[in-house]
Computed example of a mutant assay.
Amino acid sequence: MISRDLKADLRHYLGEARKALVWKLDGTTEYDARRPLTPTGTNLLGLVKHAAGVEAGYFGETFGRPFPEPMPWMEQDAEPNADMWATADERREDIIALYRRVWAHADATIEALGLDAIGEVPWWPEQSRAVPLHRVLVHVIAETHRHAGHADIVRELVDGSAGLGAVRSNLPDADRAWWIGYRDRLEETAGRFRSS
């Protein structure tokens, strides 16, 4: 039997990823929250919308506890990547509030079930659909942290803001001049390999 301490650890890391992802929207303009900054369209608000859909599915449908609100962007017949951006009619506040409601729903599922409880992920290959809550938690933690990393880079491209959060950045405590020198040194080193 898996201990409750392990469940608490997993919930902690999921919570940290959630908070980091949402924090990346703080202080951005509506334009900067939505604008695509990579060739594949990665944007801050879309990452939050996607994460809401992911958690609703994994901690809802997978365990027979469907999230009660419709998410048409997650339906089988939705436009490709509909979950990765916010339409003009979708407000930032509504997407963040939705994500927080999904958190509550997911947390209730996690609390109600043992880590060895088996669910079925209908969008996974048939031979690997039956999975314990423990594996789903690890999968969603990894995915959420991955998207929080995407958000970190996108936010840095928007206005230079970087780090884990407002209180603890997890970056060296250095001024702008140090960072410029550091980046220049990396560029100089990389430049030595430009022709290879």
Rank of each mutant, 00 (worst) to 15 (best):
A148W: 02
G165L: 07
R91W: 09
A112N: 08
E69V: 11
A88Y: 01
G53Q: 11
P66C: 11
A112S: 15
R168G: 12
R100S: 03
H134K: 15
G149A: 12
H150K: 03
A88F: 02
E90M: 05
A51L: 13
F59W: 10
W103E: 09
R155D: 07
L164W: 03
A97D: 15
E93M: 12
E90P: 05
I110G: 10
W85E: 10
A106D: 11
M74A: 14
P122I: 06
F67M: 02
G57S: 03
T62I: 04
G60N: 12
I141L: 07
W103V: 15
A52K: 08
M74T: 14
A142P: 09
S161N: 03
R101P: 06
A104S: 11
D175Q: 10
N170F: 08
V54N: 10
I95A: 05
E111H: 06
K49I: 02
I96Q: 03
R100V: 02
T62L: 01
V154H: 10
H134P: 03
E55V: 11
P72H: 09
G114D: 12
D107K: 01
D152I: 05
F59Y: 14
D83F: 06
H105T: 03
V140Y: 14
D175E: 13
P72M: 07
D173E: 10
R168D: 15
G163M: 12
D159Q: 06
E126G: 12
A162Y: 04
E61A: 01
G149L: 07
A56M: 05
A151W: 02
V54Y: 00
D89R: 08
E90C: 03
E61H: 00
E143F: 00
P70N: 09
A166S: 12
G60A: 13
F67Y: 09
A166D: 12
E55S: 12
L98P: 14
R135Q: 10
S161H: 05
T87R: 14
D107I: 00
E55G: 14
V48S: 11
P125R: 09
F67P: 00
A177H: 04
L157N: 03
E90Y: 04
D83S: 13
R176D: 05
D89H: 05
S128Y: 06
F67N: 04
R155K: 08
E55C: 13
Q127R: 08
A174R: 15
M84A: 13
A162S: 09
I118C: 09
A174Y: 08
R176W: 04
R92N: 11
D83Q: 07
A108W: 07
I95Q: 08
I95H: 05
P72E: 13
Y58V: 01
R129L: 07
L137H: 03
Q127V: 06
H50M: 10
Q76S: 14
L137G: 01
A117N: 15
P122Q: 06
I153T: 07
A117R: 14
N81P: 02
I141V: 10
W124C: 00
K49C: 11
G53L: 11
A52T: 10
A142N: 14
D173G: 00
E93I: 15
H134I: 11
Y99H: 13
A88H: 07
A117F: 13
D94Q: 09
A106G: 15
P68M: 02
M84R: 11
V140M: 14
H139G: 06
G114N: 01
P70L: 06
